[in-house]
Nucleic acid binder design. Structure first.
Length: 358
DNA sequence: GAGGCGTGGGT
DNA sequence: TACCCAAGCCT
């Protein structure tokens, strides 16, 4: 909770929802590294942009340490634009949705080369930067540049669906919810309002077990009045996740293991990884081995859930007896694998292999 | 529009 | 436990 700061009186035209929510925010705003205290000067646009991208589909507690490390290393657009691709991808390792890191770097370079090192300050221009969509453009315009923008993310969708008791299922309800959000967004302090909605959504108006008795806008809430706000928003049923199978190959040479960078696009794109063939409906076993050596197939497997499928991977190990330079990839010291910047699924595999090999 | 795209936390 | 899901974007 941040210190209370003196605020100028809000315009009388401010609707009750925004007024009550902002009063609550002034007293209860979370203190976050990328956030300015309510009612104070706008925070650094670089930090707002970085935090908004890191926070896409990712919780605050997960983002915080990544944000601290990242800003210490690359504190400005210029610093990030000049960074090495491999360093940036390694710094993102474990955070997921790796296209965000690729877009962040591309975005920093666009900003440095085409925008004089300054983030554009309108939604429409922000929308042209790689990795910035409707939500992030609105959030940056409001939070970093004080513009009135309608910021709609999953928190706002949930709060607004309950506030207006919208029964239409998502995603069909999106236009309706955006129109409703527009109606409650104030002309002034739209940035604080957006962040207040986030805090409300993450701490009080939660998906399960909303704490309505603590809610500052309960009196305005039709969902609460109707008695079952936790049933909103209604969502379309989602598909079952299929299981896919694969093999990861642990090729050792002189205390090092072979790593390869994955293709720039697609799953885990641009990340360093253990060699592996495509992941398919049936177990490929040794079909896609990176080298013709005597592979040993282990009993232990690695299971990992991705957004749209479940992976079960076999582990195979072997030794490279020829000159290290005669195979594609990077030989990484086994003792230093923790600093290789591997995605979580490969970190599971390397941890398992180090256990197996002792 | 719908599906591809990670991961860890909460219940 | 086995789900569900979180400050979305891109194609």
């Amino acid at each position: 909770m941040s210190a209370k700061v003196p605020l100028s009186p809000l315009p009388q035209r401010l609707p009750g929802v925004a007024r009550d929510l902002l009063d609550w925010y002034d007293a209860n705003a979370r203190s976050l590294p990328w956030r300015a205290p309510p009612g104070t000067a706008a925070p650094d646009p670089y930090r707002v942009w970085l935090s908004e991208v890191m926070l896409q589909q990712t919780q605050v507690a997960t983002v915080r340490p990544y944000f601290e490390r990242w800003t210490a290393r690359w504190p400005t657009f210029a610093a990030l634009a000049a960074a090495e691709d491999a360093e940036v991808m390694a710094a993102w390792a474990g955070l997921g949705y790796y296209a965000r890191a690729r877009n962040l770097l591309a975005g920093a370079r666009v900003i440095a080369a085409q925008h004089g090192g300054q983030l554009p300050d309108t939604e429409a221009m922000l929308r042209t930067i790689p990795g910035i969509g409707d939500y992030t453009a609105a959030a940056i315009a409001a939070i970093a540049f004080g513009r009135r923008a309608v910021v709609v993310d999953a928190n706002v969708e949930r709060v607004v669906a309950r506030l207006f008791a919208i029964q239409t299922p998502l995603p069909a309800a999106k236009p309706l919810i955006r129109a409703a959000a527009d109606r409650v967004t104030p002309e002034e302090r739209a940035g604080d309002f957006a962040q207040a909605m986030m805090d409300l959504g993450s701490g009080i108006c939660t998906t399960r077990g909303p704490r309505c008795l603590l809610c500052p806008i309960r009196a305005h809430c039709e969902g609460f009045a109707q008695g079952a706000p936790e049933r909103l928003p209604v969502k379309a049923a989602k598909r079952v996740r299929p299981v896919r199978h694969g093999t990861m190959f642990w090729l050792e040479c002189d205390g090092r293991v072979l790593l390869r960078r994955r293709p720039a696009k697609g799953l885990l794109g641009g990340m360093l990884a253990l060699p592996t063939g495509p992941w398919a409906d049936t177990a490929p076993l040794l079909d896609d081995a990176p080298a013709d050596v005597a592979w040993r197939l282990h009993d232990e497997t690695v299971a990992h859930g991705f957004t749209h499928f479940e992976l079960v991977c076999a582990l195979a190990s072997g030794g490279w007896r020829r000159h290290p330079d005669t195979i594609d990839g990077e030989w990484w010291p086994i003792d230093a694998l923790d600093s290789a910047g591997l995605p979580a699924v490969f970190r599971k595999a390397t941890d398992a292999m180090r256990r197996i090999c002792g």
